[in-house]
Simulated scan of single mutants.
Amino acid sequence: MRYSGDWMVLADDRILEYIRENESGRPTAMANSGVVRYSRQYIHQRCKKLVEYGLLQHLGNGVYIITDRGERYLDGEIDTSEDAPDEVESHADDGPSASGNHEQV
């Protein structure tokens, strides 16, 4: 079971799943795949949000990869419901942490 924060939307799970399966992804490729059924612009916007919360890493040139934290979210090991972007960045050296209320996607 995955525990997502109020900041997350259904597209986020699809994006993370696509990138995990393909090892990396670009918004255009995701939109054209038929797996992530959203516009390239919307996927790009969500990827930036996922980077902000530490679930994706932007490598440049529109290429994104999933982080260990993103993998752990997909595996249901962490709860993103109480995350704040600045908290994620401040814990980057300590590794991901899980806490808080549980909301199912």
Rank of each mutant, 00 (worst) to 15 (best):
S4F: 05
E71I: 13
Q45D: 00
L16P: 15
H91Q: 13
G95D: 08
I78V: 15
E89Y: 15
L16V: 07
D13W: 07
R72D: 11
D94N: 10
S99N: 09
V63C: 05
H102Y: 10
D86L: 13
E17Q: 14
A98T: 15
G62V: 09
R20Q: 14
S97Q: 11
N32D: 14
A92D: 11
R46C: 04
L55Q: 02
Q41E: 10
G54N: 06
G54C: 03
A98Q: 10
G70E: 05
G70A: 04
E103A: 15
G70H: 07
S4P: 09
Y3F: 14
I66P: 03
E17N: 12
D68C: 05
M1K: 12
R46H: 04
V36D: 02
E82T: 11
A31H: 12
E23Y: 12
G60D: 07
S81M: 00
V88M: 06
S24Y: 11
E89I: 14
V35W: 14
R46M: 04
Y18L: 03
G34M: 02
D86W: 13
T80D: 03
A84Y: 12
R14I: 09
I19Y: 10
L74M: 02
S33N: 01
H58P: 13
A29F: 10
R69G: 07
M30N: 06
H44T: 15
E23T: 14
N32M: 13
Y38N: 05
